[in-house]
């Protein structure tokens, strides 16, 4: 993984932009231009003679998203049939896999980061794991863990743990010996060193890894459901395609894009709070 330490869009000072562009960006008007252009191209494509059959028009797809994923029934939390039958199981597995990867990646990363010898020992293994083509391993996971939710959850976790692990090791090692000396001279307890020096110190890098892992987890969620799956958005994609239900197929893609956007916004908000200090330091040294 690239060791990008922070998201440019949040770390860049707004003050650098010309004054009139700033407020415009804030209202989000500029950010909407590209998506609107894409929808327009999509619409053009749907009207073309050759591809129009496979490309459902945007309006029809939007209607399908609403009818499949939303309902007016409060007992179902306003979730439509597809949302309850496929979206929820998919997200449940992705969430489980994601947190599993975060716990293992951060835990192991801190252990390896604190022990240069261990890190050196495990380095080849980490590189190997990182370069394994996870989607190709799906058969192995079904073989090892049966056919239920677990092979899918573990595939997701296995595929996304590497960027987290890598960045955590990197983050821990970036804290430096100066801070270690401070901890010894002031006799800081091991627990406080872990929770108040190591974790916060590595947090900027950890977040960079988690950001990559988050988008990977959605991709792997779909891939894990493409075969031998009874439900899930991946399964729905395949079955809609088989049934020539192209509006249904496209509605899943749109739903996925929306989920991706929502999750990313959530992560950015959390990062903003947790890493406010990091933005401050970066701005000061710029």
């Amino acid at each position: 993984m690239t060791s990008m330490t922070h998201d440019e869009s949040t770390a860049m000072p707004r003050a650098r932009l010309p004054h009139r562009v700033g407020p415009l960006l804030k209202t989000g008007a500029i950010r909407l231009i590209v998506p609107m252009l894409l929808v327009f191209l999509w619409w053009l494509g749907s009207r073309s003679e050759t591809n129009g059959l496979f490309i459902a028009p945007p309006l029809e797809v939007a209607q399908r998203v609403i009818s499949d994923f939303l309902s007016s029934d409060p007992r179902h939390f306003f979730l439509g049939d597809v949302a309850r039958g496929d979206l929820v199981p998919s997200l449940w597995r992705a969430t489980l896999g994601f947190w599993l990867a975060v716990v293992v990646g951060v835990g192991l990363g801190i252990a390896l980061g604190l022990q240069p010898v261990l890190a050196a020992l495990f380095q080849p293994l980490v590189h190997l794991g990182r370069s394994l083509p996870t989607p190709a391993l799906i058969g192995v996971f079904f073989l090892l863990f049966g056919t239920g939710d677990w092979p899918k959850v573990l595939l997701i976790a296995f595929g996304i743990v590497w960027p987290i692990l890598f960045n955590t090791i990197d983050g821990v090692q970036s804290i430096g010996t100066a801070r270690a000396h401070v901890a010894s001279v002031f006799k800081i307890s091991s627990w406080d060193v872990l929770t108040r020096i190591v974790l916060p110190g590595a947090a900027p890098k950890i977040f960079a890894g988690v950001r990559v892992a988050l988008s990977l987890s959605l991709i792997l969620m779909i891939i894990s459901e493409l075969q031998r799956s009874k439900n899930g958005l991946g399964n729905l994609l395949v079955s809609n395609q088989r049934n020539f239900d192209y509006p249904g197929f496209w509605s899943v893609l749109v739903a996925l894009a929306l989920i991706g956007i929502v999750l990313n916004v959530l992560l950015v908000q959390i990062e903003r709070r947790v890493l406010a200090w990091h933005r401050g330091v970066t701005l000061q040294h710029d």
Binding site: A178, R179, V185, K187, I188, S189, D192, I197, G201, H278
Partner: peptide, 29 residues
């Protein structure tokens, strides 16, 4: 009974803690 001031304040203070928490940190527990 020994305390130390390090040369490089930018690396000896913890930027994720407020000033008061930095100062109080060695006194925890």
């Amino acid at each position: 009974g020994l305390a130390m001031v390090f040369q490089d304040y930018s690396r000896s203070l913890f930027p994720w803690m407020r000033v008061e928490d930095n100062v109080a940190f060695p006194l925890r527990r």
